[in-house]
Amino acid sequence: MTGDDFGHMAYLMLLLVFVGFWFVGAQRERIGKTLQYAAIWALIFLGAIAAVGLWEDIRSTVKPVQTVLMDEGRIELPRSGDGHFHATLDVNGASIAFVVDTGASDLVLSKQDAVRAGLDPDNLPFFGRAMTANGPVATAPVRLDEVRFGGYTDRNVPASVNDGEMSTSLLGMTYLNRFSQITIAGNKLILTR
């Protein structure tokens, strides 16, 4: 700390003391109420400091993330607030969010995620059909060069690109069948290879 910094700090402290004395003097008749407000603001300030300091712990509790336990050969996915299990996979080098969907036959990419994975939906043959909750949609079969999930890497993975509107890609059974066991225990989906 330089001399200038010390001078600035002393000035600000002196100013704070002056303003504090003026405020207490002006509020003499209502000193009890003023002290009560000061205590409330002090608690709000301490709460904000605690929230900033504990943010990483709070965030991991509110929004849990997938856990990879390679030594045990499993991946654990926490149940999300929407009741589904979500997973993040690297597809052809792009990080893509999926909803685990045991009702989906294929690993299904939305058009947006297909572009992120290096595919061109405008040049894909959408001759397949899939039944969805919103009715039939056209699909295009594709092969993904590389899919990484946790510590596992799979190559030449069959998938489909959905021609309809999808907010999230689907992790369906053709990919999930690569795991020897799929277990739901409490609020976790456990995939074991």
Rank of each mutant, 00 (worst) to 15 (best):
D106V: 00
D106K: 03
L107C: 10
V108Y: 03
L109V: 05
S110E: 02
S110D: 03
K111D: 02
K111R: 13
K111F: 00
K111A: 07
K111Y: 00
Q112D: 09
Q112V: 06
D113W: 00
A114V: 08
A114R: 03
A114L: 03
R116P: 02
R116E: 04
A117F: 01
G118I: 07
L119K: 10
D120G: 08
D120R: 11
D120Y: 06
P121V: 11
D122S: 13
N123Y: 10
N123R: 13
L124N: 04
L124W: 02
L124R: 03
G128H: 09
G128S: 11
R129H: 02
A130I: 12
M131D: 09
T132F: 05
N134F: 06
G135F: 02
P136M: 05
P136V: 07
A138L: 06
A138Q: 10
T139Y: 04
T139E: 02
P141D: 10
V142F: 04
R143W: 06
R143N: 12
L144M: 13
L144Y: 02
V147L: 08
R148M: 08
F149W: 11
F149M: 15
G151D: 13
G151F: 10
G151N: 11
T153N: 04
D154M: 10
D154V: 13
R155I: 11
R155C: 02
R155P: 01
N156R: 07
N156V: 13
V157E: 14
V157H: 11
P158T: 12
S160R: 13
S160L: 14
S160Q: 14
V161A: 04
V161E: 00
N162D: 10
D163G: 10
G164T: 07
E165L: 06
E165A: 14
M166L: 15
S167D: 15
S167Q: 13
S167F: 05
T168N: 11
S169Q: 06
L170I: 09
G172Y: 00
G172H: 01
G172N: 06
G172R: 01
M173Y: 08
M173R: 14
Y175Q: 12
L176V: 15
L176E: 15
L176N: 13
N177R: 15
N177S: 15
N177T: 14
R178G: 12
R178Q: 12
R178A: 11
F179I: 14
F179R: 05
F179H: 08
F179W: 09
S180P: 09
S180Q: 13
S180N: 13
Q181W: 06
Q181S: 12
Q181V: 08
Q181L: 14
I182N: 10
I182K: 06
I182R: 09
T183S: 14
I184L: 07
I184S: 04
A185C: 00
A185K: 11
G186Y: 00
N187A: 12
K188S: 15
K188R: 15
L189D: 04
L189G: 06
